[in-house]
């Protein structure tokens, strides 16, 4: 090969590298910009009371703004509501999702499993507004009122497909030899699933659960139809309740409270980021 050709190729390699770098920067740019914007604007709102006090009334906020003071209060009602609803959704969605995923992985060629699998895909693609409306009809109307329970049902429905899929996929990539080894020792299918296959799949399933949580924690639309919102800290399941993304929407609609948007957004962002980091870390640890 002539030196000219080699030079040419090296040159092309370099060019490719540059193009890839530029494209990468282009796609990372907006991400960093969002993070930076939220951090800059939300940073000075973060204080202890921001996490322990409920939302101020518009009047109080207006007074504070007039006096040139920091807006009092915080987003504690939203955090408590989010946690309660997430907690209930997790309690239902995790066992149900794992069971369903297990079924799909074990009976992948049965007709019923194929239908379920298709429905799971459909559910995953369903816009969250629609899930909100459905939950409104199914839960809010019969129960004659908005409630934390209704909100958690909506979140649960949104989490299910993610958990089902991650369980199914992870179980499917576990070597069949493990299952056979378990059965060869005389175990029945259920015990082998419980003691051998599911533990081996734990990393993947747990990652799926964390991703499902980070997917729904910022959902606003389905909660508007179900949890509605509430201006004080509340722990009851059968009453309307607040949530952090609902608060962001409320803050946006109230000129006096707009300052608070950024603190709340920063909280959500950091929460999701932490979950993702944990998920990554676990996935890595599990693969070793």
């Amino acid at each position: 090969m002539s030196t000219l050709k080699i030079k040419n190729r090296l040159y092309r390699d370099k060019l490719m590298l540059w193009i890839v770098c530029i494209l990468a920067a282009l796609s990372v740019g907006p991400l960093l910009a969002i993070l930076g914007e939220v951090l800059l604007r939300g940073y000075d709102q973060l204080s202890w009371s921001f996490f322990t006090e409920p939302t101020p009334t518009a009047y109080k906020a207006m007074k504070a703004i007039e006096a040139g003071e920091r807006i009092p209060g915080g987003i504690a009602n939203g955090i408590v509501g989010t946690m309660i609803m997430l907690g209930m959704a997790i309690v239902i969605a995790v066992p149900a999702g794992i069971l369903c995923g297990t079924f799909l992985a074990e009976h992948s060629n049965s007709r019923f499993a194929q239908i379920v699998s298709y429905l799971t895909d459909l559910l995953q693609g369903t816009p969250s507004v629609i899930i909100g409306i459905i939950t409104y009809i199914w839960v809010v109307v019969p129960m004659k009122g908005y409630s934390a329970f209704a909100g958690s049902v909506a979140l649960c429905i949104m989490m299910l497909p993610l958990i089902i899929r991650s369980t199914e996929e992870t179980l499917k990539i576990i070597p069949a030899s493990l299952k056979e080894a378990g059965l060869a020792l005389g175990g029945n299918k259920a015990r082998v699933m419980l003691k051998v296959q599911l533990p081996a799949a734990f990393g993947g399933i747990f990652t799926g659960i964390l991703l499902a949580i980070s997917r729904v924690i910022g959902e606003t639309a389905p909660l508007m139809f179900t949890a509605l919102g509430c201006s004080h800290i509340r722990f009851s399941v059968d009453k309307p309740i607040s949530a952090v993304p609902l608060l962001i929407w409320e803050f946006f609609n109230d000129p006096n409270l707009q300052e608070l948007i950024w603190g709340a957004s920063l909280f959500l962002l950091l929460f999701v980021l932490t979950l993702n980091l944990i998920a990554k870390y676990l996935a890595k640890k599990w693969n070793q």
Binding site: P175, S177, L178, E180, A181, G182, L183, A184, L185, G186, K195, V196, P199, A200
Partner: peptide, 15 residues
């Protein structure tokens, strides 16, 4: 299977 044990080609201890 309780009376007939099996050892596979690739060692497969439960991970």
């Amino acid at each position: 299977r309780r009376r007939v044990g099996m050892v596979f080609q690739r060692p497969a201890p439960f991970p």
